[in-house]
Computed example of a mutant assay.
Amino acid sequence: MFDIIAVPVDGSDYGYESADIAIEIAQKFDSKIAAVHVLEEFSFSSYDDEEDSGDAILAKITEKANDAGVEVIEHLLTADPLRDMKFIINQTKADLVVIHAHGANNNRFVSFEENEVSDTQIGSVSERLIRTSDVPVLLVK
């Protein structure tokens, strides 16, 4: 049913949670995982530091998936995740995208009264991907 399942990961607990679900689905459908990490085009960190961090994030996903018997194709790209995620997903030739409602930059969704992420809000990258994707998107909450 799904040959390639794309899972954008940003190094947050939310991203790893999505990867776990993508791996479970991949096991059931004998699918491959396209693990995607996007390096920000404009960052205050050095490119080498960002690249090392991205490699470590993807390696963690690959190790988990390989332990589960799932093949992973890693994609470490420099782009704007908000603007380019649809294009990136299309380039992976994914049949399904598994993405969390929130990412590493979820602080704009924090409820100041409760100091936690609201269940009714989603991040900007996830929201745009849901609206524009040509393939099904599984939103993890």
Score class of each variant (00 low, 15 high):
K93E: 15
E71Y: 03
E71L: 05
G54M: 01
N66M: 07
G69C: 11
I89R: 13
P81D: 06
T78W: 03
D67Q: 15
T92R: 05
A65S: 06
D48G: 07
A94R: 09
S53Y: 04
K64N: 12
K93I: 07
F87M: 08
G69M: 10
M85A: 11
D84Q: 02
K60F: 03
A59G: 08
F87W: 06
V70N: 10
A65D: 03
D80S: 11
A56D: 04
D80W: 04
S46N: 06
K86P: 04
N66F: 04
M85R: 09
L76N: 05
P81S: 05
A79V: 01
R83P: 03
S53A: 02
E63G: 02
D84I: 00
T62S: 14
L76Q: 08
E74C: 08
A59Y: 07
L77R: 09
E50A: 15
A59T: 10
F87T: 09
R83S: 13
E74A: 12
Y47Q: 07
E63C: 04
F87P: 00
E71S: 06
F87S: 10
I89Q: 14
D67C: 10
K93L: 13
P81Q: 05
Y47G: 01
E50F: 11
I73D: 07
E71N: 07
K86I: 03
